[in-house]
Amino acid sequence: MSFIEINNVCKHYDKTVVLERVNAKVEHGEFITLVGASGCGKTTFLKMLLGTEVPSRGSITLHNRPIAQEPGPDRGIVFQRYSVFPHLTALQNLILAHEFKHARLIGKLFGQKRNEAIAQAYTMLTSVGLEHADDRYPHQLSGGMQQRLAIAQAFMQQPEVLLLDEPFGALDPGIRGDMHQLVLDIWGKTAINIFMITHDLKEGFYLGTRLWVFDKIRHDPQAPHAYGATITYDIPLGHTDRSTYKTIHRALQRNKPVATRNSQ
């Protein structure tokens, strides 16, 4: 059995069919990028992985078990907006996952345990370049900094699956390059499985180890909502194993020209 199995999943709202006959198997550590026309059901698909939406038919399994029908600590998420807590500073946002885990009753850590959490949080803050913004509230951070914080926050929890819904869609193109580097860095260091929706096909090809295209194969001009989208292209983007990735990544870091990633 694969890590994640999507079996004949169909999703409709009343008479509007959004997704139909979606089938896929996903292995550990894959970085899947999802592209498709706006409104074709990419977010809906991600929500079913997240557990805030349930398939109308078919099933999604994680570790051979049906995926939980509510969000949980095994699946992290970064939205386009509203991803960090406005009432907490950057540091407080990062230690929150620890506090939830180790202080079941009051959700707040003190003393030694808090210091340990803070130490870990600083490591993470540094790796996303926010070590000097630790005591700032989200509204005092730029959009790019907020998204970096959101990614760091999601990784603090060490989820098995990370879901990204157009996380860089609202950012300046200049900042996106840094964000790509950051995500690839962290993905390279952990055994995490990433699903990332993007409207930027180039970004999809560059980041992923596998690209899914969502589209409708059947059309009824009389009833545009009668059929849903499915995965029309499932394109492997080079080898999925991390060692290959690391080789390329190191090469990139040395600024040496590298052949396309598909040519491995």
Binding site: T52, E70, P71, G72, P73, R81, Y82, V84, L96, Q157
Partner: peptide, 10 residues
């Protein structure tokens, strides 16, 4: 999103 996020943080 905030409530969902909190749940994904456990």
């Amino acid at each position: 999103e905030q409530l969902i996020k909190a749940q994904t943080l456990g």
